[in-house]
């Protein structure tokens, strides 16, 4: 079985700083990490490999430093890494991103046919969650989002059975293979990278392709040119002003909370319902 996992390197949004002058993200202020959701996708692929045998390849589109994210995936247990990197890809929105990635997937599949593609639920920087379904549509394979469990992969009979998270439970879905699953974090717990993997990762050199290495590419659909969405204005949301601090001893404070909450009783009108 050959699984391809799409992974993205992202700035750690927890520590990211804003440039107060330009009001833009100061990317240099935040360390670049493997998108946390994608770590779970790679982990899942490695577990499937242990269960069914096969190969795990990871694929990223990004600038040269994104090699680091690939190495991280090798540590987790991926076998091969592919990266597409070119000025022509820069400034891509989700539509142009899914186009470029689907072209790379096609090329990987000529080297070794692909049975399953995994993505993260979303990235933590752009956080749209749109790239996974986009890739699936372009390759004309079923997209399965919100996957929280992969129950069975049956290569011979050509199907997968997965659990998709619903707002109030989950559904069990059977899909033809190949398909694309965008996975939730709860799909697994990350394990510690075994030492041999770390050693392999340190030495590992991924396959790096430019746009010229891909087949049948319509350049008009790449990068900024191929992106229907553009970012207009960017601004930093106003920091909240801070609230009223309740004074007095603890009894008085509790009484005030009570008064405030009970005053809002009129807020508790029932929603009319959509029936």
């Amino acid at each position: 079985m050959h699984i391809v996992v799409c992974i993205k390197q992202v700035p750690d949004t927890k520590v990211i700083k804003m440039n107060p002058k330009t009001k833009t993200i100061d990317r240099a202020s935040a360390p670049a990490i493997l998108n946390p959701y994608d770590a779970h996708a790679v982990e899942e692929a490695v577990r499937l490999k242990k269960r069914y045998g096969g190969t795990v390849s990871v694929l990223t589109m990004g600038p040269p430093p994104a090699v680091k994210a690939i190495k991280k995936c090798i540590e987790i247990g991926a076998d091969d890494g592919y990266m597409i990197s070119d000025r022509a890809f820069a400034g891509a929105d989700t539509l142009a991103t899914s186009y470029a990635l689907s072209k790379a997937v096609e090329k990987i599949s000529t080297l070794k046919p692909i049975d399953l593609i995994l993505c993260g639920k979303m990235s933590i920087d752009g956080d749209t969650g749109q790239v996974g379904p986009g890739i699936a549509r372009r390759l004309d394979i079923p997209p399965l989002t919100a996957v929280k469990k992969i129950e069975e992969i049956n290569i011979e009979k050509g199907y997968a059975i997965v659990h998709r998270k619903l707002e109030d439970g989950y559904e069990v879905v059977q899909s033809a293979l190949p398909c694309l699953c965008a996975v939730e974090k709860e799909i697994n717990d990350l394990s510690y990278a075994p030492l041999p993997n770390m050693i392999k990762a340190a030495r590992y050199q991924p396959h790096i392709w430019s746009v010229n290495d891909l087949e049948d590419v319509d350049r008009k659909q790449l990068g900024l040119k191929g992106s229907p969405t553009v970012v207009g204005k960017i601004w930093t949301p106003e920091k909240p002003q801070g609230g009223t601090m309740l004074e007095g001893d603890i009894q008085e404070q509790v009484q005030q909370v009570l008064d405030i909450v009970l005053q809002k009783r009129e807020l508790f009108t029932e929603w009319e319902g959509g029936r």
């Binding site: 989700t94 899914s98 969650g129 749109q130 379904p133 997209p143 989002t145 619903l166």
Partner: peptide, 23 residues
């Protein structure tokens, strides 16, 4: 921007094709 709405919109945007603003 529910799981279903996002899933459907992402697929439709790709096939049309057109831009899709998230969330």
């Amino acid at each position: 921007a529910t799981p279903t709405g996002k899933d459907l919109a992402s697929a439709v945007a790709t096939d049309l094709p057109t831009g899709l603003t998230a969330d």
